[in-house]
Computed example of a mutant assay.
Amino acid sequence: MKKRLIVACGSGVATSQTIASKIASMFEDDGISFSVDAVDYKSIQSELPSTGIYVYVAQPDEDVLEKAEELGIAVFPGIPFLTGMGVENVYSQICELVK
């Protein structure tokens, strides 16, 4: 697996940065060394080839999901990291991939 997790939102600044920081902090707390980056959705197609895990804010379109599947990228929802609802389940699935 490529050693990179990306979080994408419309601008790559607000929501994606918040979620990326939360995931990076959780990784640090658990002693996991894995790159976490916030990106804007407009550049998602060029970001995917260097990515192992993609966390989305808004539901990605079919082209993005197809490309992610083609490249073997695991895709997860990011909203649980904002709301706290279901975050343990999503985070544990991500951890299984990065360990």
Rank of each mutant, 00 (worst) to 15 (best):
M1W: 01
K2V: 11
K3F: 09
K3R: 14
K3H: 13
R4Y: 11
L5V: 15
I6N: 00
I6K: 00
A8L: 07
A8F: 01
C9Y: 02
G10C: 03
S11D: 05
G12F: 01
G12K: 00
V13A: 13
V13I: 15
A14M: 11
T15D: 01
Q17H: 11
T18M: 14
I19L: 05
I19N: 01
K22D: 09
K22H: 15
I23N: 03
I23V: 15
A24P: 00
S25R: 15
S25K: 13
S25D: 12
M26K: 15
M26A: 11
D29K: 15
D30W: 13
D30F: 09
D30Q: 14
G31C: 06
I32S: 00
S35G: 11
V36E: 07
D37R: 04
D37H: 06
A38C: 04
A38Q: 00
A38G: 10
A38W: 00
V39E: 02
V39L: 06
V39I: 15
V39M: 07
D40F: 12
D40G: 12
Y41W: 11
Y41V: 05
Y41C: 06
S43E: 06
S46K: 10
S46A: 12
S46M: 14
E47G: 06
E47N: 15
E47V: 10
L48E: 05
P49S: 08
P49T: 07
P49M: 08
P49D: 08
G52Q: 01
I53H: 02
Y54E: 08
Y54I: 03
Y54G: 06
V55F: 03
Y56Q: 04
Y56F: 14
Y56D: 09
Y56T: 07
Q59I: 10
Q59S: 13
Q59G: 12
Q59W: 06
P60I: 08
D61M: 09
D63M: 07
L65N: 12
L65I: 11
E66N: 12
E66K: 11
E66R: 09
K67Y: 11
K67H: 10
K67N: 11
E69I: 02
E69K: 15
L71S: 10
L71T: 07
L71P: 10
G72Q: 05
G72Y: 04
G72I: 00
I73T: 08
A74C: 06
V75E: 08
F76L: 03
F76D: 05
P77M: 05
P77T: 07
P77L: 04
P77V: 03
G78F: 02
G78E: 10
I79D: 14
P80W: 06
P80I: 07
P80C: 03
F81G: 02
F81Y: 08
F81H: 03
T83Q: 03
T83P: 03
T83Y: 04
G84S: 09
M85T: 13
M85K: 14
M85Q: 14
V87M: 06
V87N: 01
E88R: 11
E88L: 11
N89F: 11
N89M: 11
N89K: 15
V90C: 07
Y91R: 01
Y91I: 10
S92L: 06
Q93K: 15
I94T: 07
I94W: 04
I94Q: 04
I94V: 12
I94C: 02
C95V: 13
C95M: 09
E96C: 11
L97Y: 05
V98P: 03
K99A: 09
K99N: 08
K99M: 10
